[in-house]
């Protein structure tokens, strides 16, 4: 069987996520930007982009309702960069709209402006081989986590990957490299959820 993974496509690099997920067996990714399309997903990815823009569009077009249904049903949600900012409960110095599902505090543009954007080899807990190339673009970092949040990767003492139950967050962009191990990690989360709930 194949799992339907929606990539929120109101704004951002959703196309790269769709291509990356579709490289995996057993996954069927599609861009979604309506309540109806979101509701049909087994899991959701909130891509990189501008968190203020994506947040405003979710609020304005009532998409948060459909997303929160997925969340409360325990369907996996993965936020990359802007997507993770929207998943965070607290955002340093910002009142911007958010989904706020994860018990973390996040700081926007934590590494500087665009000229400070970088890539690096990153040690990641839980993926095969343990290390991957990470691309960070005007990236945030996680500044606080509650006990229920597992830290999966750090770069120079800054947290860049976290997991809380069915929620996954990366401040880097696995969709911009050829490596598909983080996507596989997420797909394994989706499979585990489906097995637990026994749905088809």
């Amino acid at each position: 069987m194949s799992y339907r993974i929606g990539v929120l496509s109101v704004q951002g690099d959703f196309a790269e996520h769709v291509v990356a997920i579709n490289d995996l067996d057993e996954a069927d990714a599609a861009p979604v930007k309506t309540k109806k399309a979101i509701a049909t997903c087994d899991a959701l990815i909130i891509p990189g982009g501008e968190s203020t823009t994506i947040g405003k569009l979710c609020e304005r077009f009532g998409l948060d309702e459909a997303i929160s249904k997925l969340h409360f049903a325990g369907k996996p949600i993965w936020g990359t960069c802007a997507g993770l900012i929207l998943l965070a409960k607290d955002i340093v110095d910002s009142q911007q709209w958010r989904l706020g599902y994860m018990d973390i505090e996040i700081k926007r543009n934590a590494f500087g402006r665009q000229v400070d954007s970088f890539e690096t080899d990153l040690a990641i807990k839980g993926i095969e081989g343990g290390q991957a190339r990470a691309v960070l673009i005007r990236a945030p970092c996680v500044t606080k986590v509650e006990d229920n949040v597992e830290v999966l990767a750090t770069f120079r003492d800054k947290i860049v990957m976290v997991r809380q139950d069915h929620l996954l967050g990366t401040t880097f962009h696995p969709e911009l490299t050829e490596d598909r191990r983080v996507q596989q990690y997420f797909l394994d989360m989706v499979k585990a959820t489906e097995n637990r709930t026994g749905s088809d």
């Binding site: 704004q11 951002g12 690099d13 982009g49 823009t53 890539e119 673009i137 911009l176």
Partner: peptide
């Protein structure tokens, strides 16, 4: 080792701006 302002970083910012105004 971190490598700043790679081609992927530059093109990547444009990709993050997709679907926007």
């Amino acid at each position: 080792m971190a490598e700043t302002s790679t081609w992927r970083n530059k093109v990547g910012l444009g990709e993050m701006l997709r679907g926007g105004v």
